[in-house]
Structures are given as structure tokens and as C-alpha cells.
């Protein structure tokens, strides 16, 4: 039985449809990613799953509880890390976690044990009695992830968990998320617009654009759907090489053009020696070879006709990042 299941869930704001009839299921123990540009409806969708917004139509269940009719059941089953910081900066790390544990009915005699456990996990145990306002952006993020785990949730929701963090901190946070699943079998549902994040972290990805799910598969499945790798050969006679390679089953498509030959094929790196051998046999001199594996960028471009990067620095995001930077300086 899936731990998250949404069927035809829709959210309208007046005439604007933010989420348009989305259906998806997430299995227990999965790391599931919702990938899309800003404004695609990711946060709205997650807000409905965590009972912060009511769906306009459709149904969703989390851990067996209906998000509309039993929000309390859902809230008890989940941990949330919001896109924007939601810590009390005047309180210490310990006090923030203690308050959270109390709000989520963690028994009194277990509170301290669990707080230390999660603080150790995100390597903040040495800072437990420092006020959050002295923490860096990455530390705050880690503290929020720790907080989301104190009440042992069945599902952890992460809305853009690494937005605005430097690459090193980002990798660090990916490690924590992987560790979570490994050691606690927590199901993770995250949104992101970072391709690399979706690719390396998620078991499955749903690509969302304009409120609709466009594709849903494993990262490699999505990339394979584009039909193989691209091999670019610079050679003395592209036409001759092209006809030599005709009849090779592994080659899906080939196109010669001024001094170059473009091939589409599966497992390109394994075919290079064979192609070089054929070229030598045919007397074609190859001066360079480059292999391009499809990325999620290509997948996104293929299905939406746009690159996700074009949308990356929207005004909303740059505003948000400025606000964060300002907060951090205080």
C-alpha cells in the first residue's frame, strides 16, 4: 500500500489553477522528488499534502489519513521542512527542538534523548545551547531537518531543502537525507528545481510544469526515454563513416554535417572502441570524440520545450534569497 496517494488533486486560486488534477503514489521508504521550475505548483502541491491548504477537488491520503477529513492524523504522521526558515532565532537549538517535541506529543522522558539523537545526526550537538541567530544558513537547514524528525514521522516533506545553499552544504544535506532513509526507513517527499539534486537523490521523479505532471519515472528511466546518448565525432569523412556504420543495430540515428558525425546510441561509452575500429578499417581519420549522456535538463527541455535554468532566478526567488541573506547578517 502506498504511503502517499493523490488522485486528481486540484488547487485553484480564483481563476488561476496552481495544481491541475495531479495523481501520484509514493511507496514506503522511497525518496520521491517533484521537479519543476518556480511557479510550477510544487509548493502548492506539498501544502495540500501537509494539510496547510485545502484541495479544491480531488483526494489525497498520507499514511492512510485523508488530508481533508483527518488533517490531525496526517500532521501526526509527517515532518515538514518549509522552503523558508521557520525557526525561532531567539531560542537555542535545544529549545527549538524541545518546543517542537512538545507540540508533537513526544513523551516527556524521551524528549531529551531524541533531541540529542537528532542533533548528533546533523552534527549540531556541540551547538545545542547556542541561539539560532548565531547559526549559518546551512546549520539552520540542518536544524530544521533534525526538527522534522524528532517525532519519528512516517513521511518527511522537504520543500526545496537546499535552496540558496552552497554546493558543499548541499552535498552534506543529501547525505543526511540518504542516511535517514537507510537508518530510519523514512519516506522522503521533496521538491526541487535543481536537476542534480533530483538526479542523485531521488528514486523516482515527477516533472511538474504549469500545475500538471508531465512525466514520472526513475531518473535513469527519464533519461532513457530520450533514446540514448549522443556521440559527436570529428573526422576526415563523416559521410564515409556514416555509411560504414549503417546496419549497426546499436545506432539509433546518425547525421553527418560539415566535418562532424552525430550518432545517437545506447551505452555510448561501450560502443566507442567498436566505432573507432570500424573507422580505422574504412580509412577514416578521427580527430576527436565526445560523448554526451542525456541529463535531466535534456529531459525537461524535451518535454516542456524550455530549459529549467531559464526560469531559475525568478524575481520571487532572488527576493527570497535576499531576505535570507539579510536575516543571516542580523
Amino acid at each position: 500500500m502506498p504511503i502517499i496517494s493523490a488522485s486528481n488533486i486540484t488547487k485553484k486560486f480564483n481563476s488561476f489553477t496552481a495544481v491541475n488534477s495531479v495523481s501520484l503514489q509514493v511507496e514506503k521508504g522511497e525518496i520521491f522528488g517533484l521537479l519543476g521550475p518556480n511557479g510550477a505548483g510544487k509548493t502548492t502541491f506539498i501544502s495540500m499534502l501537509v494539510t496547510m491548504k485545502r484541495p479544491s477537488s480531488g483526494r489525497a491520503e498520507v499514511n492512510g489519513f485523508d488530508v481533508s477529513s483527518d488533517p490531525r492524523g496526517v500532521r501526526k504522521s509527517i515532518g515538514i521542512v518549509f522552503q523558508d526558515q521557520a525557526l525561532d532565532e531567539e531560542l537555542t537549538a535545544y529549545e527549538n527542538l524541545d518546543l517542537h517535541a512538545a507540540l508533537y506529543s513526544v513523551p516527556r522522558n524521551e524528549r531529551e534523548i531524541r533531541i540529542m539523537e537528532v542533533l548528533k545526526m546533523v552534527e549540531l550537538d556541540s551547538r545545542r545551547d547556542d541561539q539560532v541567530k548565531t547559526f549559518s544558513g546551512g546549520m539552520r537547514r540542518r536544524l530544521e531537518i533534525a526538527r522534522g524528525l524528532i517525532h519519528y514521522p512516517k513521511v518527511l516533506f522537504l520543500d526545496e531543502p537546499t535552496l540558496g545553499l552552497d554546493p558543499q552544504t548541499r552535498k552534506h544535506i543529501w547525505e543526511y537525507i540518504n542516511k535517514l532513509r537507510r537508518e530510519h526507513n523514512v519516506t522522503v517527499f521533496l521538491t526541487t528545481h535543481y536537476m542534480e539534486e533530483a538526479d542523485t537523490l531521488c528514486d523516482r521523479i515527477a516533472i511538474i510544469d504549469h500545475g500538471k505532471i508531465i512525466m514520472m519515472d526513475t531518473p535513469s528511466g527519464l533519461k532513457d526515454s530520450l533514446g540514448g546518448d549522443t556521440l559527436l565525432l570529428e573526422c576526415s569523412s563523416p559521410r564515409k563513416l556514416c555509411s560504414t556504420l549503417k546496419g549497426q543495430e546499436c545506432i539509433i540515428d546518425s547525421k553527418p554535417h560539415n566535418g562532424k558525425l552525430t550518432l545517437r546510441l545506447d551505452n555510448g561509452e561501450k560502443k566507442i572502441p567498436m566505432i573507432m575500429q570500424k573507422a580505422r578499417d574504412a580509412g577514416v581519420a578521427v580527430s576527436s570524440v565526445s560523448l554526451h549522456k542525456p541529463t535531466l535538463d535534456d529531459v525537461f527541455l524535451h518535454y516542456t520545450g524550455r530549459t529549467i535554468r531559464e526560469e531559475n532566478i525568478s524575481s520571487a526567488e532572488s527576493f527570497r534569497m535576499h531576505a535570507r541573506a539579510r536575516r543571516r547578517m542580523r
Partner: peptide
């Protein structure tokens, strides 16, 4: 403004 309100609003309380 500091976002902390969300933390209390989504708690099962």
C-alpha cells in the same frame, strides 16, 4: 515575518 508561525500552525495542536 520570520516564518515561525507556520511551525506552530501545522503542529497537531
Amino acid at each position: 515575518q520570520f516564518g515561525f508561525l507556520k511551525e506552530t500552525l501545522v503542529a497537531p495542536v
